[in-house]
Design a protein around this nucleic acid. Structure first.
Length: 497
DNA sequence: GGGCCTTTGAAGGAA
DNA sequence: TTCCTTCAAAGGCCC
């Protein structure tokens, strides 16, 4: 396997991670070289914020800006430490004197209340929103945009500046790349028809190669696969997408986002309130539920039923809980029936509240990111549709990747984890275990027999050379079936026992 | 309708 | 520290 070239040992993933961080260290050097340019960038950005602040906001804004960012008690110490460590380790100068309060791994502003009493976005929230989702014209500074933000029903795209990333003269490609990595923006995730490459366009070589034109000026066809890219800015993370039809139904600032390539980014629908990917409202709602369940009530900021940012996170899946009417099942003829039903209603309501807690998905690991990118390509090449077979191919291709290529995905995965950790500080992978899921049936993997499965990989570092054709899923995997009794010297260890 | 398959990696818990 | 388990995505297949 390519990963073994370096003689790193058995743990390939660990080695790759090391490589990833090594590369990162090289990036730090480059970042240092461009520190002055980034300061200029920061000045420009800060001036933009301050300018709009001065013009539009009352003194409360300034006061809010002076206030230290809300230190949520929800942040675990270890999370904070890891974030700080990651910040120190990763961005060097960018974090020494962060011109952006929210960039990129600083504490997230209080998004549960990003608006000031006058209806405008607080500077902190505005900064965060812009950094997090550049599509938001939160920094535009115009009364128009703010008006649109306040008037959630206004779908006016007038203040939309279109898909863009914050590119400033003098900003190095590397820093821009880092910015894009850390502030990928959710726009739209088409459940199955989005080219999976999209997620990793951000991490394509374009961003690693200085001097490339802005990605949004490039064609819509991915040069790598020839598959058209979805109407989404390549700098925008599709991992934190908005679901079509999920946002427009809610009166929030994103209602004004413009359609791209004829497809509405945030379509205003009159459909139900069910949505596969909850919006930022549900993010906040999830955090609200999370906070409520873990911390004293007085420590939990108030939660409003309508979100303020409208930014969803794909890692969240809200169970489709039927909205119960508070009066629908209450009888009117008998007080006894009424009382009984009311009790039942209250009980079911409690259960529903538990179920309503959005399911925050795990951040994707490097291989998952790779799969998302390459799946369509493999499907196109092999005309396969069965994911099991495709995943086998992808698994082999993954091992065939060079260390540098893999490092790219490890880096992306690391960014995703950091972003996920920022968005959901108290989240634990354990939360998603079936045992903690209400009403979710625990999935049980089929028990593997000795000598079956990954054990072979230890003895055949390159499974592409030793395994039967990958499309032949029915081919036996056991060494006896593969090599026969007369070639037991080729059997792997477990099979030889 | 929901679990299984299949891959790798991350994370958490048990030993 | 090591090992094991679960979950993340994907979509056809099967019960």
């Amino acid at each position: 396997m390519p990963q073994l070239n370096g003689g790193g040992g058995d743990d390939l993933g660990a080695n790759d991670e090391m490589i990833s961080f090594k590369d990162e260290g090289e990036q730090e050097e480059k970042i240092s070289e461009n520190l002055s340019a980034e300061r200029d960038l920061a000045d420009v950005k800060s001036s933009l914020v301050n300018e709009s602040e001065t013009n539009q906001n009352s003194s409360s804004d300034s006061e809010a800006e002076r206030r230290p960012p809300p230190r949520s008690e929800t942040f675990r110490d270890k999370t904070r430490e890891s974030l700080e460590e990651a910040a120190k380790r990763q961005d060097g100068g960018l974090f020494k004197s962060p011109p952006y309060p929210g960039y990129p791994f600083i504490m997230i502003p209080d998004l549960t209340s990003p608006y000031l009493p006058n209806g405008s976005l607080s500077p902190t929230a505005r900064t965060y929103l812009q950094m997090k989702w550049p599509l938001l014209d939160v920094n535009h500074g115009s009364l128009q945009s703010r008006q649109a933000l306040k008037d959630a029903r206004s779908p006016s795209p007038a203040h939309i500046v279109g898909p863009f990333c914050l590119e400033f003269p003098g900003q190095s490609d590397l820093s821009l790349h880092q910015f894009q990595l850390s502030n990928k923006v959710p726009v739209v995730q088409h459940p199955h028809h989005v080219h999976p490459l999209t997620p990793l366009i951000t991490y394509s070589n374009e961003h690693f190669t200085p001097g490339n034109p802005p990605p949004h000026l490039q064609g819509d066809v991915d040069p790598k696969t020839g598959i058209p890219r979805p109407p989404q800015h390549p700098d925008i993370s599709p991992y934190y997408p908005l679901s079509p039809g999920s946002v427009g139904q809610l009166p929030h600032p994103l209602g004004w986002l413009v359609p791209q390539q004829g497809q509405p980014v945030y379509p205003i629908t009159t459909g139900g309130f069910r949505h596969p990917y909850p919006t930022a409202l549900t993010v906040n709602a999830s955090m609200q539920s999370f906070l409520s369940s873990r911390f004293p009530h007085h420590m939990v900021p108030p939660h409003h039923s309508l979100h303020q940012t409208g930014i969803p996170h794909p890692a969240i899946v809200t169970p489709n809980v039927k909205q119960e009417s508070s009066h629908s099942d209450i009888g009117l003829n008998s007080s006894t029936i009424l009382y009984t039903l009311h009790r039942k209603h209250q009980d079911s309501k409690k259960e529903d509240e538990k179920k309503k807690q959005p399911h925050i998905k795990k951040p994707l690991n490097a291989f998952m990111l790779y799969m998302k990118e390459m799946r369509a390509k493999v499907v196109a090449e092999c005309t396969l549709k069965e994911s099991a077979a495709i995943n086998q191919i992808l698994g082999r291709r993954w091992h065939a990747l060079t260390r540098e290529e893999q490092a790219k995905y490890y880096e992306l995965a690391r960014k995703e984890r950091q972003l996920h950790m920022q968005l959901y500080p108290g989240w634990s992978a354990r939360d998603n275990y079936a045992g903690n899921q209400q009403g979710k049936k625990k999935k049980r993997k089929r028990d593997k027999q000795p000598g079956e499965g990954n054990e072979h990989r230890e003895y055949f570092p390159n499974p592409c050379l030793s395994l039967p054709p990958i499309t032949d899923l029915s081919a036996p995997k056991k060494c006896r079936a593969r090599f026969g009794l007369d070639q037991q010297n080729n059997w792997c260890g477990p099979c030889s026992l």
